[in-house]
Write a protein that binds this DNA or RNA. Sequence first.
DNA 1: ACAATATTTAGATATTTGTATAAATATCTC
DNA 2: GAGATATTTATACAAATATCTAAATATTGT
Lengths: 92, 92
Amino acid sequence: MDDSLFRALADPTRRKILELLTEKDRTAGEIAEQFPIAFASVSHHLGVLKAADLVATEREGQFIRYRLNTTVFQEVVRYFMTRFGGEGDKNA
Amino acid sequence: MDDSLFRALADPTRRKILELLTEKDRTAGEIAEQFPIAFASVSHHLGVLKAADLVATEREGQFIRYRLNTTVFQEVVRYFMTRFGGEGDKNA
DNA sequence: ACAATATTTAGATATTTGTATAAATATCTC
DNA sequence: GAGATATTTATACAAATATCTAAATATTGT
């Protein structure tokens, strides 16, 4: 299991970004305006998430649209279920 | 979802400790000797895991025995499944 | 090509973190 | 209680990280 994945998940801002992307795909700016920190800082977080393959991007004119890469989340779930008891899903 | 949980999982040594505890409960010393770092450093990691409630301890004479707290792992799985697509288990 | 908008990259800084050594605490045995 | 073993806590330090401001890059529209 890739180290960058868990490190990416370790930051609350990044987890919040992921949750925002659960609702719908968003541009970098739309994401950034949800946080009290500088745009450049959010951009850094987006880079970390992308490096961990948790999100993917697509340019759309001037904008860059971010979306979740759900495949990787399935890998995370699989990691936990296979290693730490497969009963975690019974009443999820 | 608690921040300490994901931060605890972000370190590869700590994840390895958790995997060791999957096999069987172990004392701090048994865990520490599996790693090339100082005992005190492993002890620090154990403290982080315990603070995140990922492991529990029980004193056994001179020894302190560590075991997984599987409940918390189920919470992690639930976190991912509810937020990021519940299909992650289909072929786990 | 220029100005405006969207986003990332670069450089700087303060905080956090992983590790080490040394000291402290707890338990056991004699 | 003294000495041995097991473990944690304290302190220090180097490396990693989150944030900032400023500069750079990319796209659009005039």
